[in-house]
Write a protein that binds this DNA or RNA. Structure first.
Lengths: 132, 132
DNA sequence: CATTGACCCTCCAGTAACTGGAAGCCTCAT
DNA sequence: ATGAGGCTTCCAGTTACTGGAGGGTCAATG
């Protein structure tokens, strides 16, 4: 199978597939003409990667998950550890963003948004306190 | 004032200050010895930038905000527009992350996390459906 | 048989916002 | 004079791709 077919079937862009080969996530053979030659298994791995990436796993996580995916003797605790760690990081990010949102929403609400220069947003960002 | 003092007073790392000069966010003078020479105003701007960055504004947003900060004739609607836009993007990110979190949390909960290979996380990522 | 259009290939560069490190000058205190 | 910091520049690396240039390959058509 050529890269275009694989891209269509796996949902991963050709460019990205080449990149994944570069970093060693997949290892397609080559045809005589130099084209990458993929198998069904590659399609599966790429779809797997696509899903993992969609859940926000890093490429390094994906590398680990892929090896566990292929390992008949994996222990589910290994998988769970990766996922839990990632979950924690997502929760941290959410918390950070929610705190930003709270501040921003408050400032936006307080700002008149008219033609006058007075602006609570600018004031909040301004370091007047330093000049006290 | 030298860069170290400014870093301490503004809370922005020296390295970052140099970077901000590189990209034209601030323009300190130079002393005879080649050292950057900062004023109080630079400290204020950097503290401003630090806060804006902490709220997640991009560098380009910061450029805009900084010019509005310095513009006596700004209209608060300009500031508000930037902030609202940013707020929207933050909300998008939160939504995406929450969706990831929901999926992940469910999978993590379902996973036994023991020594057996069976794992709902791996199963969810696996593209069995393609091979139907 | 030549051409055309759709594929495929390999580099190279750019993205966002820094951060780390090397190599080397400046300054001040001992 | 020497040593500890502080300052300088420049280069490289980070994350995960994405776009584009320049150039082969293949199948079908005229």
């Amino acid at each position: 199978m050529n890269i275009g077919d694989v891209a269509r079937q796996s949902g991963v862009p050709a460019k990205t597939i080449r990149y994944y080969e570069d970093i060693g996530l997949i290892r397609p053979n080559r045809s005589e003409n130099g084209y990458r030659a993929f198998t069904e298994n590659h399609v599966h791995k790429l779809a797997f990667l696509g899903r993992a990436r969609a859940l926000g796993f890093t490429i390094e996580d994906c590398r680990t998950l892929l090896s566990l995916y292929e390992d008949e003797k994996r222990e589910s605790m290994q998988v769970k550890a990766v996922a839990e760690d990632h979950l924690r990081q997502i929760e941290e990010k959410i918390a950070k963003l929610q705190s930003m949102r709270a501040t921003l929403a408050e400032l936006v609400e307080k700002c008149a948004g008219d033609h006058r220069p007075d602006c609570p947003i600018i004031e909040d960002l301004s370091p007047e306190r330093l000049a006290k």
